Each structure stands twice: as structure tokens, then as C-alpha cells.
Amino acid sequence: MIAIKSNLQRNLDALAEHHCAELKPSIIARLGSLKTRQQTFINQNIDRILTGKPKQLSDLLSEYKKFCTAKGRGALLAKNINKGLKSVFNYKHFSRTNAPVTEYSAYTLVKKLDVNTCPYCNRNYTVTVDKKKRVTRPDIDHFISQAKNPLVGLSFYNLIPSCLVCNRSVKNQQPTVYGRYIHPYEEGFGTATKFNFFSLDVDSLTGLSDNYIVTVEHNTLEPEKVQRCVNNCKLFKLPEIYDAAHHGEIADIVRRHYISGGKYLEMLQDTFPQLGSIDDLYKIAFGTFWNEEDFIKRPLSKLTKDIVDQLVFINPVKPKSAIFL
């Protein structure tokens, strides 16, 4: 799990406000089909519904149910509180592939988010190709199920760009509850959960074969977060998928470690002193990113960093003669 972090290029709160401004008028215009209690709550809370952070969305759902079912005129049965909401918070219309290029849609949202890899697995690219013609975009997962909670079907912080495998094949319609799982708009695995590997023969010790077992390790010093990480690993089948798919990448890293005695980064720095920083050296060495905040840019950045740390590559402490051209 990789965090989708707010930064200068991706200001999440600003994107959420824009999302609200674009969708709010059409949602308000469709409220007439709902019961009075539903209309009242949505009118009073529409900005919170569209821009609320993950914890706020969880609280809003409880508030909505309580408001709609409270005794008094217009009270609804609990089984009826979601009736009509799918048409009002019309995700199907928002996500259609033939939306005009000038219209705010799912394509617009994911393009602005610029999330290049799936935050759930960090295995697959999730780039958006949308120039003169809309070609492809990532799937969008609803962290809180829109089928059971259509009130948050268009909520910005409930829309997670993801790969098809994670969204449709692995997670599918399995429910997630806020607080029990890692939410990518709030955090990633960080140091709480790391990938690990074990060699099963002599050749794999030097990267000449890819006979490994890949597992995940959990940091006992972060017990509360670890439990959320464990739940995500189970939900997205990460240990099983990584163990089945990525032995070859691990063998490549092991080989670099073996032939350099752990000094592969030092060797690169001696050869290319103009690279200077550990970020530059690391990207050349392993094809991924050193800093966790950049993991979202390229697949397998988390796995690579964890394996590099496990092997204890010797990193240059200071640039020897950094030359910036």
C-alpha cells in the first residue's frame, strides 16, 4: 500500500474543492426525486459529502442514517434511506467513457491526481492517456462501497485510482470499513510492513536463480497500524501475488549485491560522480525511487526498497565530488 500524498503538483484539498464545484450543481438539481429527509440532509451537507476526508465520510454515513430514521414527520425506515441515491450521486454517469472531453468526469479527476501506479499493490501502472482522444485511465475503487452507501458514491476521498486487478479481481465487492484498513489518502505501509525474501537454493543466494519465497514482515513496534496493514494484505492478496510474480526482480537485485559486495551504489558514484545524490544513484541502479513519497510514481518501488534494505547495500554517505551540470 502506497500513500497518495498531497504536494505542490497534487494539492488534494484543492482538487477536492474543484471536484465539489463541478459536481454540486447537478447533484442539487436531481434532489427532487428524494424524500424530504434525504433532501434536507444532502442540502445541508453537500460540501462535506463531496470533500470530506475519509474519517468524516464514515461519520457522515452514521449521521445520515440517524437523521433519516429519527422519529417525527417524514421519518424513513432504515431499509429505505438509500432509495434513489444512486440516481442523485450518479457515479455511472460520472465514470462513462464517452463523456465529452470538456466535461468534468472520472477522466478529468484521475488525470489531475496523476497517480501513476496502483496505490493498493504498487505493481501496475495506472496512467491516464487523455489528449485529443480518451484512450485509457485507471479503475476507480470506492473505499467505502457505493453499492451499500451510495451517499458517498461521488465523494472525492472515496474515489481511489487503482488497477483493474486490485479493484475488480481481488477486492471486487468485499466491504471495507474505515479504521480497519490502510486508506491511501491518509497513509501507506511505511515501516510497519515490509516485503522480505528467503533463498531456497545456492544459486538464488547470488541471483543466478529466482528460487525464493516472498513474504511480508510486520513491525511489532507499530501494533495498531500493523493490524490495518495485515487486513490490507489479506484483502488484496499481496503476499500471494508478490510471491507468485516477482522472483525475477528480486534475483536482479541480489545479483547486483553479490557482484559488488554490497557496494553497487558506491561503484556507480565512482563511475558517474556527476549524479551526486542518493536519489539519482538509486534510480540508475534499480530503476525505482528511493524516497517513499515517490513510490507512487513507478511500480515495485516499495518491494525494491525493502529488498535493498534487507540486503544492506552500502550507500555512499556523502557525494565525493558532486558535479551538477
Rank of each mutant, 00 (worst) to 15 (best):
K305I: 09
R48F: 01
S209I: 09
D139T: 13
T97H: 00
Y258T: 08
T69I: 09
N232P: 07
I314D: 14
T220S: 13
F143C: 05
V226L: 10
F41W: 14
L268A: 15
P100R: 07
K24M: 10
G179T: 12
I296P: 00
V230G: 05
I144W: 03
T126F: 00
R255N: 08
E266A: 01
L205W: 04
P273Q: 15
L281D: 05
I81K: 00
Q56E: 15
Q146C: 07
K302E: 05
L57G: 09
L34K: 09
N90C: 06
N7G: 10
S199Q: 08
G190E: 10
F156T: 13
N116E: 13
S169C: 06
S58F: 05
A244L: 14
E293T: 14
G72Q: 06
P119F: 01
S199A: 14
L205R: 14
H183R: 01
D59N: 12
V254T: 13
R256T: 10
S204P: 00
H183P: 00
H218W: 01
K171M: 07
G287N: 02
C118Q: 03
N291R: 10
P273T: 15
D47R: 14
K71E: 14
Y91T: 05
D306W: 02
K86A: 10
T288A: 02
K283P: 08
V129S: 14
V312G: 01
K302Y: 02
A16M: 13
I28Q: 02
E292C: 03
D201K: 04
K283Y: 14
M267L: 09
F313K: 13
D130T: 11
I323M: 05
I144L: 10
L281K: 03
L268M: 14
T304G: 04
A322T: 13
T51H: 02
V88M: 07
P273G: 07
S204L: 07
L34R: 11
T220L: 11
T136A: 07
R30G: 06
E266M: 10
I42H: 08
L303S: 10
P319G: 10
L325C: 02
K297V: 11
K55G: 05
D252V: 12
L159H: 01
V230C: 03
R30E: 08
D201Q: 05
I213K: 15
A285I: 04
S6E: 10
F236T: 12
A251L: 12
L200V: 09
K320S: 04
C229S: 13
E249T: 13
A21P: 00
K194D: 06
S260K: 12
I253P: 00
I81W: 01
K66S: 15
Y181F: 15
W290Y: 14
I46Y: 04
G72S: 06
K283I: 12
S33L: 08
P161G: 06
K83M: 04
F94T: 04
D201L: 02
H246Q: 11
L113T: 03
E224F: 09
D139K: 06
Q56P: 02
N219V: 05
N90Q: 05
R96Y: 01
L281W: 03
A3W: 02
E240D: 15
E186D: 08
